[in-house]
Amino acid sequence: MQAIYDMVARWAEAGHVPAVFQHAFMVRGLLAALIIGPLLGAVGTLVVAKRLVFFTQTVGHGALTGVALGLLIGEPLGSTYAGLYGFCLAVALAMTFLRHRVPASTDAIVGVVLAQILGLGIIAMVLVTRQYNVHQVEAVLFGSLIALTDQDLAVLAGTALVSAVVLAMSFNAFMLATFSPTLARTRGIRPVICEYLFVAMATVVVVASLKLVGALLVLVLIVLPAATARALARGLVGFFWVSVGAATVSTLAGLMLSTWLPIPTGAAIVVAASVLFYLALPLRWLRQV
């Protein structure tokens, strides 16, 4: 990785790219943004189609508890992968199990689980802060460009690769199971297995993105680009690619914005994604006239 950082730093010194890319953390942030943007934009189309927005937000909020649990089981600060991935996956799969087994609305089940994981998170935080500064643990809520490491980038790249393969192979199955589980079954698809696979994939994508975007704001990159695409697109192909494009542009714009203004990267991404969304709305209204 150092060779890449050195090469980009030389480009920055020569004026080919903005001067901020002399810093390795900016190059890391750029690479992460180029992975996170398209990935969340793509997954977002299915999250919106499946009406799993609140579900995904809850998985993101589980990150705080996951980080605290990771520290409690002895993982080093900044690399609490087992706690983070393990807890968030457990939350996502448990909510899916409850949705199938408990006669209650999805909103109610997700709300109950959200309350429980936040309660558990607070308990875990109290225990953890005997050893660590609470602000070190809270970093997961807001994301941090500077805290991103080469190891995080490698985990993100691996997650993205596996998720992209699963998405490409199963996109139609995920969508058909949303149209009608019974129709999907007669087409040889197991809708319940499909749902577990989708929530597992969406969870690892969300968790892998947290380091840069933050747990509180990761939902923005799932919902806003898909909402922008919904306003502009006329068909599924447009819906998917406009969402991918809007998420990528938002992430890159947010990254650059956070270098010019003293604001966290996640918040800057929200601003960029919101601008695109509000620009898309009048275009939709004009089309409907």
Partner: peptide
């Protein structure tokens, strides 16, 4: 099916539904 369990605001065409239901190649 009697209907499709979809948000009516999703930009889907008849072609999209057929591509999703009939083909393995990703409909996007």
């Amino acid at each position: 099916p009697q209907s499709l369990g979809l948000d009516g605001a999703l930009p889907l065409t008849v072609r999209d539904v057929l591509n999703v239901a009939l083909h393995r190649r990703p409909a996007f």
